[in-house]
Amino acid sequence: MSEHKIDLTVNGHRHSATVEARTSLGEFLREGLGYTGTHLACEHGVCGACTVRVDGVAMRSCLMLAVQANGSEITTVEGLAKPDGTLHRVQQALKDNFGLQCGFCTPGVAITLATVLEDNPSATTEEMETAMSGHICRCTGYQGIRRAIRQLAGEAA
């Protein structure tokens, strides 16, 4: 199994590591660097729980290898809130609207919605719901997530 040295930035912190070629980015973030907020739920790219932001793009970290992230800037759910603890507006909207229950799928949901809003701060409800269609949540029936999306779009939740 070949090993490779990589350098990357996660939530503003620089990391260097040697990884096996086959290690997924999600596994590396969790076990190599301790960012356990990223959750691996299907490991085949369908459920969206492991979504992280790689160079501004929402990526499924189970489908990307750690070596592919060499030189990248990555944001995980741990990097969304401000250093003083103020929640990102996506996190706040999810909290305000009971948008999570068990919280296992939530990190991916938060990263996806934050990335949509990063690209377009005035994204519509429809655009955010379309992005959300790539995430599976087993607990909430998506009710609170949909209300959070409306709140983020400036509509009545």
């Binding site: 907020g37 995980t76 929640l87 996190q91 068990c102 919280g103 939530t106 990190p107 938060a110």
Partner: peptide, 12 residues
Amino acid sequence: EDGRLLTGRGQF
């Protein structure tokens, strides 16, 4: 529960 779960500080 939401504070820790939204910020990646849960313990699974």
